[in-house]
Nucleic acid binder design. Structure first.
Lengths: 230, 230
DNA sequence: ACACTTCCCTAACAAGTGTTTGGTAGGTTA
DNA sequence: TAACCTACCAAACACTTGTTAGGGAAGTGT
């Protein structure tokens, strides 16, 4: 947004003179990090574009040429900023999870009651969906395949912390008599978790509902159900 | 299962004599359907294997060589039974949706009350997840990208029938006073729809819970909520 | 014995993939 | 003016992808 990307399907052309060379040999030496220092602002800008394409087309179906096209440049130019396609994915998800846990931790440290904790966590989740909907969509679709790789182990770490936080909250609620005790608590956990995060697949910001409004309605359904009280 | 697939990573070798040829020209003539007639049983068997791989790795990340490997044969051999990778996907999803609507239609034609209809639809959904969990997982992950293609238009057709059936049921419930009228009905629809189908991402048959048992607990949460009655 | 069918293998193809390398326009600093 | 840095282009590379073509082994019917 800071720089106007011209036509977005035509690559930059600052010169029209083609540039012929004749084959360079390949040498697979040890890992060489480039000596250059790309600006972090441009990095974030490109990651935002990449995240949108990943979210819309899926990671594997997204080619680096499509990303470059959306950014108004050529595929190889991306490698000035990032050293692989997977690195982009990794940075997108890592940034998202870092900010997510910033919010969660402040909720958990507030030492609220079980019901208030649940309400705060759900509301916070919808705010994150509002801010990182592309990253959330990617996380939903790809995390299952990625947890196997050691590079993405922070995904399963996060998943475990997530599960622990929710289960603890639910158990406390049952012990204190604010949540029903006749339900499988593990099932209830998956229920709450899924109902929140799948919203990212259809939620579009500026669609009449604020994150807080959606959270309020979701909480109303999860806590009190959709049937009338008898 | 009817035929023991040997080692599953070693292709069949009925002869050890290599077979050399020297380049055949490519001719892209009009669509030629093969004159052969592969058995439908073997087709279904292979589709089941392909569905498992698709569900686990994602459609785009799944190569035809992986499918063939899981089936104990080589990539090219799949094309004796199917004419493309996409055809396999199409047949998997079409078969699933056909059987799904068989179940739904019999529920809808029973003319039950809104609450009973909702209960029956949810229970039927969990039964379908139990029988077609691979297809359901594929549907969840890939349908969003596929609806654009005309070949998969039956996906959006199904989606519309789905939405109509659920919205009608919910509206009837509100009108008859069995469902709450203070909720956004469209949000409630997405809520119910998503809570049911995401279960396919973690559900594994034979895991202690029968489909009916899971349906019972889900319905209890959706209808009455997880908080205790005051 | 022969023809025929079913089902798979061998071997390649063209298109597309992520990635690397060298070059260079434009700006900033000395 | 010269040296330097940032951010990109142009062109190729090795490899993987879905797909095709021809051939052959085992079984079945005649």
């Amino acid at each position: 947004m800071s720089k106007p990307n011209q036509s977005a399907s035509e690559p930059n052309q600052r010169t029209n003179e083609p540039n012929q060379r004749t084959g360079a040999p390949k040498q697979t030496a040890g890992k060489k990090k480039p000596q250059v220092s790309p600006s972090p602002e441009r990095r974030r800008e490109l990651l935002g574009i990449a995240a949108d394409v990943f979210a819309e087309q899926g990671y594997n179906a997204t080619t680096v040429r499509k990303i470059a096209d959306a950014a108004g440049m050529l595929a190889g130019s991306l490698y000035y900023h990032f050293d692989s396609k997977e690195s982009m994915l990794e940075e997108i998800l890592r940034t998202f999870l870092t900010e997510l846990w910033d919010g969660y931790d402040s909720v958990l440290q507030a030492q609220l009651g079980p019901r208030e904790t649940l309400e705060a966590l759900v509301t916070e989740s919808f705010r994150e969906i509002d801010r990182h909907r592309a990253a959330v969509a990617i996380y939903q679709k790809e995390s299952r395949h990625l947890v196997a790789q050691k590079r993405f182990q922070y995904l399963s770490d996060s998943q475990q912390r997530f599960e622990k936080a929710w289960l603890t909250t639910l158990e406390r609620g049952v012990a204190e008599g604010v949540f029903r005790d006749d339900l499988d608590i593990r099932l209830a956990y998956r229920f709450v978790r899924d109902t929140v995060w799948v919203a990212a697949s259809w939620y579009r910001p500026g669609g009449g509902h604020s994150p807080e409004e959606i959270a309020r309605q979701y909480l109303s359904m999860v806590l009190d159900g959709i049937s009338v009280r008898t």
